[in-house]
Write a protein that binds this DNA or RNA. Structure first.
Lengths: 208, 208
DNA sequence: ATCAAATTCAAACAGGCGTTTAAAATAGCG
DNA sequence: CGCTATTTTAAACGCCTGTTTGAATTTGAT
């Protein structure tokens, strides 16, 4: 295992758990059992390390997500909103094969990135991976053409909020569900619960 | 204006904007134009200051929220989910009279508290203000009795995520909406957009 | 006015932070 | 092997953090 990957592996766990601001390079290098200076040697700075951690996941996720959404767009039949959101399931759960707890870790990182560091990750995602967003809005529009661009804007951001927030605290929620309802839940179970919710939210009748 | 309130006023603005971890006591005391040591003299520690900032809002909000929800529960007619979530509007917007931009600031703080500092604020809220949660779940149950406790648990947390996440980035979203759709939006406008969304999400047909 | 209590203040504390340095170790190629 | 380039290492850098100290000041009741 290369030093670079030791750092990335340690960093993603700590970043997901404690946020970017809340994790120090010394915690990362001691968990990864590498020298402190290795981070700046291999990545240049902490900010670049954060980008590298996110890129590793995005490069794994985005082609699969893009083709799943593109398939919906090119298909002749009109998809339901459930179809659109369900298109995320496969690509997201694939991250579990890419890396242990990959799905959960990635979604937690996404949540951290949206609230930590005053939205620089939002900029990073929308500028580096614009096609994913374009295909997604296109698919939603196909499923619900009556929705105006402005209403879609708001509802998609609400959806992003639901997903990202839920996942960034999914460990705690899964624990509570386990103790209160004596039910085993995993990240796939949470995803299956959240899809009808966001689909119904986006499909809500238009306010006037 | 007392030193204590100068500190609280400066702290809430910075906490909302940059998070709890991301704000230093020196930033707070210099914005509030008080001595650095005053924070520890009046509040004991940074952690206690955070609690005090949140308590000031919760003590203003929770009695109004509780009575609005209690009214729904005691009423003879069955409320809709829209009614339940609309019960939040009045108490939340009242924070704008309590303090300039109070609604937005409070919701941003709530969002910060849920993701910063590993959920100690969640513990604080649920243990210090349990009645608000109890009345809320009771009202939702009255509006949608078929929903099992477990499904309600998940959907209410999804809702919390939608609200908190949206509001913690509401400034950025309002800016984007303004430039993309040339439409003036304020915090009340966002709240009116989000209520049909979360009401429809909670009302979604039960998955099986 | 007096005296004690409450508050403010400048200064320093110990410790953690991201980053840099220069020497030591390792690797890869002729 | 010998030599160069890459990588690892321990140590230090300057800066910022939350907190504490003890003296100066202000306050409020007698």
């Amino acid at each position: 295992m290369s030093t670079k990957n030791k750092i990335l592996d340690a960093a993603e766990v700590l970043f997901a758990d404690k946020g970017f601001n809340g994790t120090s390079l010394r915690e990362i290098t001691s968990l990864g059992e590498v020298n402190l200076a290795a981070v700046n040697y291999h990545f240049g700075s902490k900010k670049e390390l954060i980008k590298a951690v996110m890129s590793r996941y995005m490069n794994e996720l985005s082609p699969r997500l893009e083709s799943a959404l593109a398939a919906l767009c090119q298909d002749d039949v009109q998809p339901t909103l459930n179809d659109v959101f369900s298109a995320f399931i496969g690509p997201l759960l694939h991250l579990n094969e890419f890396k242990e707890n990959g799905t959960s870790t990635f979604l937690q990182l996404l949540g951290r990135g949206y609230t930590d560091s005053q939205g620089f990750l939002r900029w990073f995602l929308t500028t580096q991976y614009p096609d994913v967003f374009a295909h997604f809005t296109q698919a939603v529009h196909k499923a619900y053409p009556e929705l105006s661009a402005e209403e879609m804007f708001w509802r998609l951001h609400f959806t992003m909020g639901t997903i990202v927030f839920t996942m960034s605290s999914s460990d705690a929620l899964i624990d509570i569900a386990h103790s209160d309802f004596e039910r085993e839940v995993d990240i796939a179970g949470v995803i299956k619960q959240v899809i009808p919710y966001v689909a119904a939210g986006v499909a809500a009748p238009i306010a006037f």
